[in-house]
């Protein structure tokens, strides 16, 4: 809310969601989600530094279905933000602004992020069958 009480633009609720706008807000959401997700990275390093027991607690928590779901979500957020970030970097150098390219690159981002997420998890599970 503007402190002077003036209405703020744009009024998002009057727009029909489009691929470009949805991907744009998803970039922010995944960014914020990962910023909160950094605590897992911190926890991992601290647990290794503290030694045996702290590390096994971490392993136990992230071996549960809920822990795995969180990691899966974070991995998708990571790959989405990474792929869409590359898309943004192309825009930053002035490339890919026309509508056709913006939509095509959008679909490429969704596909790449999904494929990367599944590839990583398939790799993780096939090399470590005991965690299945």
């Amino acid at each position: 809310m503007d402190p002077r009480g003036r209405p703020l633009s744009p009024h998002l609720q009057v727009y029909k969601p489009q691929l470009t706008s949805v991907l744009s807000i998803l970039h922010r959401i995944t960014g914020v989600v990962m910023a909160f997700g950094t605590f897992v990275f911190v926890w991992w390093l601290v647990a290794v530094a503290l030694g045996g027991e702290a590390y096994s607690i971490l392993q136990d928590i992230f071996s549960t279905w809920f822990g795995r779901l969180l990691l899966f979500g974070w991995s998708f957020a990571l790959f989405y933000h990474l792929c869409n970030g590359i898309r943004h970097l192309f825009w930053d150098i002035g490339k890919g602004f026309d509508l056709t390219t913006a939509y095509r690159s959008g679909w490429i981002v969704i596909t790449s992020a999904t494929v990367l997420t599944f590839v990583v998890w398939i790799c993780a599970y096939t090399s470590i069958g005991k965690l299945l």
Partner: peptide
């Protein structure tokens, strides 16, 4: 920082796959 993170993240993800099931 975004450009720096690209190679670093690829390096880390590949290594975490290897470390995922490893003991401490």
């Amino acid at each position: 920082t975004a450009v720096l993170l690209l190679p670093l993240l690829i390096w880390l993800v590949v290594n975490i796959l290897y470390l995922f099931s490893a003991d401490i």
